[in-house]
Design a protein around this nucleic acid. Structure first.
Lengths: 128, 128
DNA sequence: TGAACGTATGAACAGATGTTCAGATGAGAG
DNA sequence: CTCTCATCTGAACATCTGTTCATACGTTCA
């Protein structure tokens, strides 16, 4: 079903499931790909931004430090749901928080997050 | 359960479900938020990049024009699954394709996509 | 101390998502 | 024409994901 050329380590995880059309281009593309860990990290970062609620949380925090309650009001989502999402964003190191009395005041973890959001918004504008 | 100040249109979709702590900050953050359509578009873009298979497809296409078969070999995923994902990427205007005989040669839709990927990779590097 | 509040957490549920499978389409080779 | 190949498609399936609900925790204030 395939000529199974073992010269290039193309997708050697499953060993030759699919025939290659353009071996050269395939080899080059494969070489250009980040390692599996890098791809995973990148997709994890994007998936954190792929939900409307989380995205509005981050965009709001890009403008102001806010507590759970206010974020709930801004997004129109229950405080519980917000708390769950904030936990995910914390695990991804996208936000940090500080306890102030009974409140938990959240902010973006670092400047890179704000830059990332801004770049994303710019791309959306440019391709309309 | 809430004082329901109707001065600010905070989350008026559900009408006052949650009390506000810091009204000023909440109002400012809400004003800074893009409209619902913008948030939707942005999250859609990110969700297209949030899957490992799709991400590897795009990263591979950033290096080389490739057909479905070669993308299947590169990612180690079946041609059928690749085709499904390419359809999604086409619908999101992230890739285009050209028929060459029986093959379908895919490429990134425009330069913005390549830039977006590169920026994402850079962010992943910087925050390690 | 006790009540109210802001937040966190785990289980449960519904809806979304990615892959597989079987089958169809269209182009090129014999 | 017929067969093969590359690709596409829809249904089925299992898994993942986001919200809700009930509940628990820690802080503040009376």
């Amino acid at each position: 079903m395939n000529r199974c050329s073992d010269e290039s380590d193309v997708a050697d995880r499953g060993a030759c499931e699919v025939p290659l059309i353009d071996e050269r281009a395939t080899a080059r593309a494969l070489a250009a790909l980040p390692d599996e860990g890098g791809v995973r990290t990148l997709s994890d970062m994007y998936s954190a931004l792929s939900d409307r609620t989380r995205l509005r949380i981050l965009l709001a925090l890009a403008a102001e430090e806010l507590c759970v309650c206010d974020l709930a009001a801004i997004t129109g989502v229950s405080p519980s749901a917000i708390s769950h999402q904030l936990r995910l964003l914390r695990d991804r190191d996208l936000v940090t928080f500080e306890r102030v009395g009974k409140r938990a005041v959240y902010r973006l973890a670092d400047e890179h997050v704000a830059i990332l959001l801004e770049q994303g918004l710019r791309h959306v504008e440019e391709r309309s």
